[in-house]
């Protein structure tokens, strides 16, 4: 049980986290938010890489600021950006990281490294230097190292960036398999990643949690309030001023505008059709504080 209590963090004048509180249990948790929302700051704080200015983070009742080891021993962390030592093979680097994770038994470690590399399908390329991998391969390596030591808390920050559709699918499969008995925090700005996998999620914007709950609950909040209409490009600005526009999608012919309203917009804006809301709508709705 990971409980995040009122943590705040500023970098100079910028408030990256403002009073963020979350209680997380076993299972996949999605943290959705735009770039600059503070997701990575939160992830790094959870990974004990920085300390919050105020507030506490407790893992199973232990304050990880006081005892970072408690988190580190059970953490698997895939950072948003990471580099690797040049000219070091995947198997050598993974073995090295395994030692740092405390897997001291030589045979056990060898097995770990082998099976992880096979799971992420890097086994055929295990002797190549990780620094020569493509983006997707490097991301898979990152996943492998995050899974070292059977972590009970897994934090993945923007993990599907740079993966092609098949790789992305495999990765998300892998995650959902793993979610059986661990806390997995998936931090992303891609709505689709969260939609299918997460039973629990939060939307983060400007350093604050603006919504929390299961995806369907968040969607339910705007049920019956979403209206869509296809218009010309030049009409969009006017619509923005008059209504709560959720999103605009360019499709052949024109722009489909989705707005949030209790009733169908009338007057010059007539022509909106009620639509079933999806997670993306809920995302924008909550993010823009329309809800």
């Amino acid at each position: 049980m990971l409980s995040i209590n009122n943590i705040s963090k500023s970098f100079g004048k910028i408030d990256a986290l403002k009073n963020v509180s979350l209680d997380l249990d076993v299972g996949m948790f999605g943290l959705l938010g735009p770039n600059g929302a503070g997701k990575s700051t939160l992830m790094r704080t959870l990974a004990t890489l920085q300390l919050p200015d105020s507030g506490t983070v407790n893992l199973n009742g232990v304050n990880i600021a006081e005892n970072p080891d408690v988190m580190r021993r059970t953490l698997g962390y895939l950072p948003q950006d990471f580099g690797v030592y040049p000219r070091m093979s995947a198997v050598a680097l993974l073995d090295h990281l395994a030692i740092l994770q405390g897997i001291t038994d030589n045979d056990g470690r060898k097995t770990q490294v082998e099976s992880l590399l096979k799971e992420v399908n890097l086994w055929p390329k295990r002797y190549s230097a990780v620094s020569t991998y493509s983006g997707g391969q490097r991301q898979r390596f990152g996943v492998a190292q995050a899974l070292l030591g059977d972590p009970k808390v897994l934090i993945v920050d923007e993990p599907t960036a740079g993966l092609d559709p098949l790789e992305r699918q495999r990765f998300l499969n892998l995650l959902s398999e793993a979610a059986e008995d661990r806390i997995i925090i998936l931090s992303t700005h891609i709505v689709d990643d969260v939609r299918d996998l997460c039973l629990d999620m939060a939307i983060m914007g400007d350093g604050e949690i603006v919504a929390r709950g299961a995806p369907e609950d968040l969607i339910a909040k705007i049920d019956g309030k979403v209206w869509r209409k296809q218009v010309d490009k030049d009409e969009v600005e006017a619509l923005r001023e008059k209504h709560q526009v959720l999103k605009t999608q360019i499709q052949k012919g024109g722009v489909t505008v989705s707005v949030l309203a209790d009733k169908a917009p009338t007057g010059s804006s007539a022509g909106f059709k009620k639509s079933a809301p999806d997670l993306e709508d809920a995302y924008f709705a909550h993010l823009n504080r329309f809800v």
Binding site: D69, R72, Y77, F82
Partner: peptide, 13 residues
């Protein structure tokens, strides 16, 4: 320089 600090420092080493 290699960009490995996050991974290393988040480990229990």
């Amino acid at each position: 320089v290699a960009g490995m600090t996050e991974i290393i420092d988040a480990s229990p080493v």
